[in-house]
Design a protein around this nucleic acid. Structure first.
Lengths: 224, 224
DNA sequence: ACATTTATCTCGCTC
DNA sequence: GAGCGAGGTAAATGT
């Protein structure tokens, strides 16, 4: 990664054309060749940029004359940076980033809850995640301490349509004498009052998931 | 603007939860307090960030111990950065940026077409741009050579929803006896075949705009 | 590979 | 201030 602080003007020509008058800015050149032009405000979006894949061509410029960067993108779009005065120019090798892990999405909540079935109550045993039915997979299917089936629907935010979805599963599953009775649990980080009322009215238990707590309890990497 | 190169891990807790394992990264603190965490790849989007308005609280950490930054956003969301090793930490005052000037977006197409109504046909006269209706503004309202009203919807890329939008305007406008009959023109740099079929079926004329040509023909600043 | 949907969307505008 | 629509949307997901 290369960081340049410079007084520069910038022109973009691609899907649209855009121009930045001369000012002091931060230029970032990443390892993949992408270039960002940042000002000292705004938000995370650069004033202008070029996404990878692209190629940077640098014309140093005569002493006392501005240098020019020409960045050409895959589709032929160009970012032209005219550097009038370079305050600093440093490079650093950051290596490859392990990447962002987003949590709190449905898939991760399902994974966590499947490993902590005790949150549903004592003696619960997992049958399987993504239990298939003709109208879609049940997030978690398990048995309670009495051996009766429990279908769990997991949402990040529990709203009415999630309750409807679980209701459809339960209607279907309870027609199967090998499974019935199948109980329902509606689990979410946040359950809207309307959804809670509807679920309760239909005999579906609501379970609010404490994501932070679940993540803390999640088993660490052990020796085995 | 402050630039920090550091080995750090990052946790975000807000609308969602996200975690970044420890790695070398670039941290940018802008004048408005916003914080960006960039890796050496990807695109212009940071791995994680906090948008302004927000407040940065810095706990320096004991010697040999990591320091911690806690950035708190307006809605209570937090970005926690644990700095294990700081490679560099520099600040620079960039001043206020004059800002970006864009061309070739929908607004500019509208401006160009309003000045070149002959592209619609001979004898067209402009009534006004952004002609207001209760369901939103019509991009261009004009009269044709017979004095009948013509509503023009302009898109950069003409797709079906743009045709639907114009259809809603036409339905409404044609209820007004002072305006009816109002004809429709769907103008775009590129019109998808499905959109063209739908528009034609509804008696809406399609017009493909050549942006570069329109820009070339646009009258230069003349003396009078 | 391509189409569709989402987003801590951002940004700019109108009411 | 809330609401709406565009975006060089970008990024993720499903087919």
């Amino acid at each position: 990664m290369r960081l340049v602080i410079a007084r520069c003007s910038v022109d973009y020509d691609g899907r649209l054309t855009a121009h930045l008058p001369s000012a002091l800015r931060l230029l970032i050149v990443k390892a993949d060749g992408s270039v960002l032009v940042h000002s000292d405000g705004g938000s995370y979006k650069p004033l202008n940029w070029m996404s990878p894949p692209c190629k940077l061509s640098e014309q140093p410029g005569e002493p006392g004359q501005p240098g020019t960067w020409t960045v050409t993108g895959k589709g032929g779009e160009t970012l032209t940076i005219t550097l009038e005065e370079t305050i600093s120019d440093t490079s650093v090798d950051l290596g490859v980033d392990p990447g962002l892990k987003k949590d709190g999405v449905e898939a991760h909540l399902q994974e966590l809850l499947a490993g902590q079935l005790h949150l549903l109550g004592d003696g619960y045993r997992l049958i399987r995640r993504e239990y298939p039915t003709p109208i879609g997979p049940v997030d978690i299917m398990c048995r309670d301490s009495d051996g009766e089936h429990v279908a769990v629907e997991i949402k990040r935010r529990g709203e009415i349509d999630g309750v409807e979805q679980l209701t459809r599963y339960l209607d279907l599953l309870n027609r199967d004498p090998l499974l019935a009775p199948v109980h329902g649990v509606f689990a979410a980080q946040e359950i809207r009052p309307q959804a809670r009322v509807l679920a309760t009215d239909r005999g579906i238990r609501c379970l609010t998931l404490d994501y932070h707590q679940m993540r803390g309890i999640e088993p660490e990497n052990t020796l085995f």
